[in-house]
Nucleic acid binder design. Sequence first.
DNA 1: AATTGACAATCTGGGTCCATCTTGTCAAAT
DNA 2: ATTTGACAAGATGGACCCAGATTGTCAATT
Lengths: 202, 202
Amino acid sequence: MGTELKSPEKPPDDARRNRLLDAALGVFLRYGFRKTSMDQVARAADVSRQGLYLHFATKEDLFLATLQHSMEVSLRLASEGLSDVSLPLEERLVRGFDAWVGRYVGMLGADARDLSEVLSASGVQEVATRHETLFLEAVAKLLRASGLVAAYKSTGLTARQLTDTLYATARGLKYSSGTREAFVQGIGVAIRALCMPLGASR
Amino acid sequence: MGTELKSPEKPPDDARRNRLLDAALGVFLRYGFRKTSMDQVARAADVSRQGLYLHFATKEDLFLATLQHSMEVSLRLASEGLSDVSLPLEERLVRGFDAWVGRYVGMLGADARDLSEVLSASGVQEVATRHETLFLEAVAKLLRASGLVAAYKSTGLTARQLTDTLYATARGLKYSSGTREAFVQGIGVAIRALCMPLGASR
DNA sequence: AATTGACAATCTGGGTCCATCTTGTCAAAT
DNA sequence: ATTTGACAAGATGGACCCAGATTGTCAATT
């Protein structure tokens, strides 16, 4: 019976927490886990170093929370893009893959190779693959619902196979694209090619 | 007017040289440039260490010759696959990409990251991109000749765009496929999807 | 032509020492 | 709730040395 309204999914004190996590993401992706210091993150988030410890007990805690938060944001953005019925199919797919993969293009530094090690040394790895599965299933679902899979019926290819192919393309573009714009460009071409059987309307 | 026949492109003493280069390729890809010793390569090629110096002045010479040879072999195999008119289009494309990309899946070790550094620090880098261009143009040419580009006419996509998309897919599969077989499987799916507009004829 | 044995010059990896940075915690102040 | 200042314990990185590996070359041998 308080006077405040609380969103059950998002406690209000998450505003600051999210700011910290967003700042941390950029630093971690650029410099990796070891070469990133709490002081560096604190300055990026414009808080004191001790302010970080007020929310995260250790550096590893901060890191894992950062990745988890990043994945949740990516999945949410991707889902929103994929399910935006006001957009044509191609655009929905582009936004989905841009949110899930393109977001990180150009953000990874050379020292960021230890991220996956720290990640796999914790239980968050499973969260990552679970979110990945959710994203891929959302894409496959959209491909089915849009009638695209039916259009590929003569090939016998499943929605999951088409999805995996598109995902492989996205991963390939991620490593060869210098900028996010180039990635969007590339995945857009791939998606247009894939969606051609539905007719190049407009 | 000797009694021997000489292929003008392949001097006969290349037999031994090629054996050395093939052996060297496997070692270099697995252990990288620095962590690979001439002794290691010599043992892999079943020759003495000094036997290597009889053909290659320095370790770097051997390395660059190895990469150049490897690219030439890949390009030759890929060209043979792409131009094999006895095969259906899909199979020709699969063989092309398998020769150009799949051949190396699973062969790269964790220490092989310094290969690109040494490569870019020499003039061979240009050879690599030139061969890559030749491969991609061969693919694009096949896509045009097969009528596939025409089938995509309504999308406005060019042969080069379709080719680049397929190449991005291949690169994505390269990093996620543990084995060459898995790669061939994946690129086969992608190619079947791409070739669908020509009809899933047998 | 290729091999073995041997060689000096050089490179590499391990080890130690030590100064510096970083982490995680605390009390006092706003 | 957050900040500043401060702190000990521990991690990190650079300088240095040294043993062993590696490179590139040679002469003698098949």
